[in-house]
Each structure stands twice: as C-alpha cells, then as structure tokens.
C-alpha cells in the first residue's frame, strides 16, 4: 500500500443512468416498484420528508419534471425525482412513522443510490481504461469491495 484516498462521489448524469442506480439501490433494499409517474398523496395524515442527494444533478432534458420512480415497502413510499434546480431528490412518506424515522430511511436510500452510481461508474470507466475487476464482494456492512488490476 502506498496511498489511500477517500472520495465523495459526484452524481451527475442523465436520468436513465441515475434511474438505473436508483432501481438497483431500492430493489436491493426490498422495495417494490409502484410506477414511474407522480402519484398525488391522498392521505394527508401521512408524514412526508424530502431529502436531496448531495452533489447530484440530473442532466437537463433527460427527464420530464413530473417523472419519478415510486417504490413501496411496509407502508413506506419513496419517490425519487428531481427538484427545480435539477438535483436528485428522495421523498419518503409513511403512516405511523415519525419524521426522524422517515428522514433516516431517506438518508439510507440516498446513500445506497450513491453507492450504486459510484460502483457502475467506476467499473465502466476502469474497463474502458483496460483495467480488470479481479475480485468483488459485498461485505457484512453492505459495503462493496473491488480489487482492480491493470
């Protein structure tokens, strides 16, 4: 070992690329897909928390403003879309859940989306540069470890 660096991914891409990362993340967490369009919330008693994926931007014109990925698990609904500035947002709603619990779920989903995005970007870009992934495993803490050689 000669150098160790810690990086925070920048999640900037087209909606198809980002939505692929979203789908990989949420299905891996056990959420079931409900659709890809905006669903108006009918139950006003449901708490709702919106978080933004840090350092994210969906490239303009690659999605319509109302387009969203909607997934659900155990009464919790997650909508992933974009805000007015083109940043990727994660909106979590649920009944019987506190705002703190929903925020925690939103942050976990955001993290897993970033993880999926970084994984696919790294593997794709390194393959283009003739590097090979020689080993890959998911660790107990849900981290993904890759060994890559030229």
């Amino acid at each position: 070992m000669s150098a160790v660096i810690v990086l925070t991914p920048i999640v900037v891409s087209s909606w198809p690329v980002i939505s692929a990362a979203v789908m990989g993340a949420v299905t891996g967490m056990g959420f079931a897909v409900q659709g890809s369009t905006l669903h108006e919330e009918k139950q006003s008693s449901r708490e709702k928390v919106e978080t933004e994926i840090a350092n994210s931007e969906i490239v303009a014109d690659s999605m319509t403003p109302t387009e969203k990925i909607v997934v659900q698990k155990a009464g919790v609904t997650i909508e992933v879309g974009q805000d007015d500035r083109g940043r990727c947002t994660v909106c979590v709603s649920g009944q019987g859940q506190s705002k703190k619990q929903l925020k925690q779920i939103g942050e976990e989903v955001s993290g897993r989306i970033i993880q999926q995005f970084a994984y696919h970007k790294l593997v794709t870009e390194l393959k283009h540069r003739n590097y090979n992934v020689v080993d890959e495993e998911v660790l107990a803490d849900q981290s993904v470890r890759l060994r890559v050689r030229l």
Partner: peptide
C-alpha cells in the same frame, strides 16, 4: 503494475488503496 482496492460504503463514500 498498479492494483486498486476500492471499498464503496453504503453511504456512497469511496475509499481507494493504490498498491
């Protein structure tokens, strides 16, 4: 020849060791 060990945490943080 370089070898990278890359760990992508569940929060998205990427740690890279160059070997």
């Amino acid at each position: 020849k370089p070898e990278f060990e890359i760990v992508i945490s569940k929060t998205g943080k990427v740690t890279v060791e160059v070997k």
